[in-house]
Design a protein around this nucleic acid. Sequence first.
RNA 1: GUGAUUGUAGCUCAGUUGGUUAGAGCGCUUGAUUGUGGUUCAAGAAGUCGCGGGUUCGAGUCCCGUCUUUCACCCCA
Length: 452
Amino acid sequence: MKYPNVKGTRDFAPDILAKRKYILNIIESVFKKYGFLALETPALEQLDTLTGKYGDEGDKLLFKVLNSGDFASKVDDNIWSSKQSENIAKFISEKGLRYDLTVPLARFVATNRNDITFPFKRYQMQPVWRADRPQRGRYREFWQCDADILGSNTLINEAEILTIAVEIFKKLNIPIQISLNNRKILEAIAEKLGISEKFNLFTVLIDKLDKINFVDLSKDFENIGLSKDKIAELSKILSTQYFNKESINIILESLNNNANAQKGCDELLEILSFISLIEKFDANIKIDLSLARGLDYYTGCIIEIKCSTAKMGSIAGGGRYDNLTGVFGLPGVSGIGISFGIDRIYDIMEEMQLFNDVKTTDTKIVLCQFDKKGQLYNFKIAAMLRENGISCEVYPDLKKINKQLEYAEKKGIEYVIISGEEEINSQILSVKNLKSRIQEKIDVKNIISYFK
RNA sequence: GUGAUUGUAGCUCAGUUGGUUAGAGCGCUUGAUUGUGGUUCAAGAAGUCGCGGGUUCGAGUCCCGUCUUUCACCCCA
């Protein structure tokens, strides 16, 4: 431990990376199947691009990068001597590591609007960085896999995003619980309670309700200006258990048929009706009015997905944002997207032992030998195998045969070819399956077809 | 960012009120076995006790700082 990793960052050894790639490949294949195209953006963005999009807390978690050159000498003495880090930072840092993939996407779309065919469907799988305190399932460098659709308002997009998520987790064998809500309903509730100006604080409290019960939070609600009566009213609205026409009417009634609420409810119903068209769609979807999500840019439907059997935060999340490109000078382009957190997905799959079938190597055969002559022979055979698309390796050292077999065994390679004088003279190879421990004699002429 | 917590061999962990040369299991290397790996047996190698400083005759053990881990806040994938 002489050179520990930076806090919250990890190395991915080959066996770990193989499993991560397994997850990434499944996600990517589903994204592609739905018509999304790949995009990559730089790790670094201008700080102006990043700040102000994630809420105050989000801004604090941005990693900032020092300017190049002799930046210190250019800073005003008064600023330096103020010793206020935040203040000084503005003068010595103008770049930062990206915090998510959605804001860079919005920047990209706004900048390249003339070259993009809308609706723009892009996927992106890259690391992001947050200066958070690490914990289980929480890292400072982690990967997000996003799929977003920009420039289309219709709710078929929401429905497709949901089906993508269901398909991915089905393929990964992770049992999930999907929570759905609409920010418009939350806005209507805040309106009705007379705390629209404190909407963000309100959503933060709402979001805690799955952890802390209503009674324990009531003091916090009082602090943002809610009377006891109004808290009781809020409690009644949020206690709606089933989302159907009847319960919606009750909600709407208690909100005086607020137009925003009506729209939010209609949207949720339409999404559900889309999904009901798919026959074999068995997903655990619940409408949860206490789902809020912290990111400031969401305006419509919001989605959060958790593993229903693991003690872990959300493993995917997303929603609709109506005006994110607007802050980059391109108003009127609505977007919807979802983000999968593959580090958490990995942790859960490791716990559930879902990686049993994942191979760490593509090598199918290790060619072993007893002496130099055997190795030369193997080198020739290996070239022939590779030419025919069979991935193999020649054991590079002249160690004892049991060491060579152990090597293949440990790497999870299925076959070995053992070459000695006998094999070279007869042109008949000894092929051993390490799993079944069965050894066969195969004529060199037939070796390709044997492995194909 | 606030408050806790962790670190001893490659891995999992012992290590007494501070006291000789810091241990175990697994793994690793070698041999039993010079044409065949999952068992067995035997032998062996391996540690600046996270790092830096301090207290002490003496520190793995006590104190301070720092890095890392985990946890609760905060927030989120």
